[in-house]
């Protein structure tokens, strides 16, 4: 059975995931998202993968969340608070979620992974580096291309072309 740390982490993670979507203020939503990401990092630590956990915190919390937070702050204040949304749609969404969760959960609980544990030592993080550079090296190159493409594209998108004519009314 799960231990206390695990339970606490899962409560934090799932709770803040719900909060990220449901809190009225987008800023608090972003903070809650950080909670989720941090919780996932905690799971990674539980799973003996500190490299991924630290990568998760450094990249996800340290940069992606910052970017999200900053972008949220760029948005006008009244828009940070969302409009009241369609009730029916919300219930439909909750229904979909429940169906999905229950369905998937039962599928998983039904399957053979129910009682898998392991006593083998965890993978050393150096193996990951070795993986990167030997087996996955084309993927690493592609990764660089992705990063290059995304930074190029994002900068070209986010810059202003013509300051005078930029604010275009709807």
């Amino acid at each position: 059975m799960a231990d206390a740390v695990f339970l606490a982490l899962s409560v934090i993670t799932i709770g803040s995931a719900i909060a990220a979507l449901e809190l009225r203020s987008l800023i608090y939503g972003s903070i809650a998202l950080m909670g989720t990401l941090g919780g996932i990092a905690g799971f990674f630590l539980l799973l003996d993968s500190p490299f991924v956990a630290m990568f998760q915190i450094a990249v996800y919390v340290g940069s992606i969340a910052v970017l999200i937070l900053f972008t949220v702050m760029l948005v006008k204040r009244e828009l940070i608070f969302k409009k009241i949304e369609d009730k029916r749609r919300k219930f439909a969404g909750i229904g979909l979620m429940l169906v999905l969760m229950v369905g998937l959960g039962s599928v998983i609980l039904d399957s053979g992974i129910k009682s898998i544990t392991t006593d083998e030592p965890a993978v050393d993080f150096r193996d990951i580096g070795a993986d990167f550079l030997t087996y996955y090296w084309p993927a690493l190159i592609l990764m660089a291309l992705i990063l290059a493409g995304s930074v190029t594209g994002a900068l070209v998108l986010a810059r202003r072309e013509d300051v005078g004519n930029e604010q275009r009314a709807n």
């Binding site: 059975m1 231990d3 979507l21 979909l96 979620m97 999905l100 998937l104 998983i108 898998i116 392991t118």
Partner: peptide, 22 residues
């Protein structure tokens, strides 16, 4: 490892469900 695989998978499924809902 004191935790079982199923626990993590269930948390993951719950997060998937929340994401789909969102």
């Amino acid at each position: 490892m004191s935790n079982e695989l199923i626990d993590f998978v269930l948390v993951s499924v719950a997060l998937l469900g929340i994401g789909i809902y969102g």
